[in-house]
Design a protein around this nucleic acid. Structure first.
Length: 484
RNA sequence: GGCGACGUGGCCGAGUGGUCAGGCAGAGGUCUGCAAAACCUCCUACGGCGGUUCGAUUCCGCCCGUCGCCUCCA
């Protein structure tokens, strides 16, 4: 595809992307509720959208990326009965709710940084936008889409003909089988809370025209996306599990308050399983990202470099489910290393004089893959094939005359967009003394080899390998690399 | 019960109505004192049963299975 196409959940098909304002993209992605450490599901979602953002920028768009931090209003249970997740965790950890929010916001960014996820341009907190949320609720009341009962304000779903258009649901069909525990003051079970009255035990509460209370979960996204991206913007993203009810409610609120379309394109990433099973605390397999990075979990045999997890995720499509297992990750690790070896070889090639490599077709081919709803899996396949070809040329001594352009392009694509560039100068690599010492040992070993003292030469090689220093002989001499 | 997605070779995973995904693992070979790396070659799958078609893994129907949502979740 020569133009960017995005699968739009609203239409259930791929559509050519056309921004509202030429050259600019406003995108909102649902962020985390900060009451626990991020896990593989977060990784899938935010790595997926990271590539979306990076690729939009690569294409030359000026992007404003907004991703909320939910620190109030998200309930543990039924939207009417549950406890606030932050307050519940605060009780467990014996901390203030805002301490919980700070702690897990910190952990969230720490782990996302490790995965190479670019930070959003704006990370608005729900608690920092109570006024905006109250204003939004007032508008909905004025427009007849909401009603107040005894300090609670609910959205009146029956007032919105379009309700269900995103998730393809028909409100009337939802009753049977679903657990219904309607709060007594709601007119209809599908109505949802915009503002909740706080009882005395509630810590996080604010004054409002309806008394002291706190905002409903869905309204924060409507209020904050509007504040930073406008009432009508380009792309809204999030996990598939949020399609209903969260995103459906956002649309209802925003379109009900402003009487204009909300987001043009809705993107949803698919879910993650672990060894074929859904992850969940009750199943005992909810491993946090931090535990993956450190290997510190009883279900894990070893630590997994964040970049391996990123690569593994990008090898599948964001709209497919991803099943994690250590076996699959090990395969991904070898694949990633081999890809990065190719990049290193190409990147260290000197200027050449052989026929130019057809960079334009590589570029076109890679772009066409990402233009097709961000098909990173195919883009990576193209990279494997093409980089292998380039390396072959370099190894045979025919370095293309445009090798500098090739390097520059790889930087912009593999590093800036996919973020799979080889990690440079890790730990001991950059140390000059270490380098000199290894070279010294290589010299000694090569002398031994000339004298056919293979016992000594092999000892040197084996002992270095024990130190994770791998020697590679070639007709041009001996090279080494430090492996992790 | 309702809505939706999916089922690809040992593993992970794209994709398509009729020549190829790709990666990992494995096998053989070239090179090497040996190994590693690199290079060459091989391993040719599409849940089951029907239907449409000259031809289906790709379209349709049914069945089986897995997963998601319908209630908090990326």
């Amino acid at each position: 595809m020569d133009k960017l196409h995005i699968y739009n959940t609203l239409s259930r098909q791929k559509e050519e992307f056309e921004p509202i304002k030429e050259g600019f993209v406003g995108i909102y992605v649902c962020g985390p509720t900060v009451y626990g450490d991020p896990h593989l599901g977060h990784a899938k979602s935010y790595v997926s959208f990271d590539v979306v953002i990076r690729y939009l920028r690569y294409l030359g768009y000026k992007v404003r990326y907004v991703q909320n931090i939910t620190d109030v209003g998200h309930l543990t249970d039924d939207a009417d009965q549950g406890e606030d997740k932050l307050e519940k965790q605060a009780a467990i950890e014996k901390l203030e709710p805002m301490e919980i929010a700070e702690k897990y916001t910190y952990n969230y960014f720490r782990d996302m940084d490790a995965l190479g996820v670019q930070r959003p341009d704006i990370s608005p907190r729900a608690t920092g936008h109570i006024i905006e949320q109250i204003e939004m609720v007032k508008k909905l009341l004025e427009n007849g889409h909401a009603y107040e009962t005894d300090g609670n304000v609910y959205f009146d779903v029956s007032s919105d003909e379009d309700y269900g258009k995103l998730s393809g649901r028909d409100v009337e069909d939802q009753e049977s089988g679903a657990r219904i525990e309607t709060a007594s003051d709601k007119r209809s079970p599908e109505d949802f809370a915009l503002w909740k009255k706080a009882d005395d035990g509630h810590i996080m509460k604010w004054p409002s025209p309806w008394g002291k209370g706190y905002p409903g979960w869905h309204v924060e996204c409507s209020a904050m996306s509007t504040k930073y991206l406008g009432e009508h913007f380009d792309i809204h993203g999030g996990g598939m599990d949020n399609q209903f009810p969260h995103h459906e409610c956002e649309i209802a609120q925003s379109e009900g308050a402003f009487n204009k379309p909300f987001a043009n394109y809705w993107m949803h990433n698919n879910m993650v399983t672990l060894e074929g099973q859904k992850m969940g605390k009750s199943l005992g397999n909810a491993i946090s990202l931090h535990e993956f990075f450190s290997g510190d979990h009883e279900l894990l045999n070893r630590a997994w470099d964040p970049q391996i997890i990123r690569f593994f995720l990008l090898q599948s499509h964001y709209r497919s489910t991803t099943d994690f297992s250590e076996e699959a990750l090990a395969g991904a690790e070898n694949g990633l290393r081999s890809l990065q070896e190719m990049i290193n070889t190409i990147n260290s090639a000197e200027n050449g004089s052989a026929n130019a490599y057809d960079l334009k077709s590589l570029r076109t081919s890679l772009e066409s893959k990402l233009n097709d709803d961000f098909n990173t899996a195919q883009a990576i396949a193209v990279l494997f094939e093409e980089l292998k070809t380039i390396r072959k040329q370099i190894n045979s001594g025919d370095i293309p005359e445009n090798i500098a352009d090739v390097k520059e392009f790889l930087r912009s694509f593999v590093d800036d967009v996919l973020r799979l560039w080889p990690q440079e100068d890790q730990s001991s690599t950059g140390d000059d003394k270490t380098h000199d010492l290894i070279e010294l040992l290589i010299d000694i070993r090569n002398n031994a080899r000339h004298e056919k003292n293979f016992e000594l030469s092999d000892t040197i090689r084996d002992r270095l390998e024990e130190l994770n220093i791998k020697l590679m002989d070639s007709p041009e001499g001996t090279d080494y690399k430090i492996v992790k």
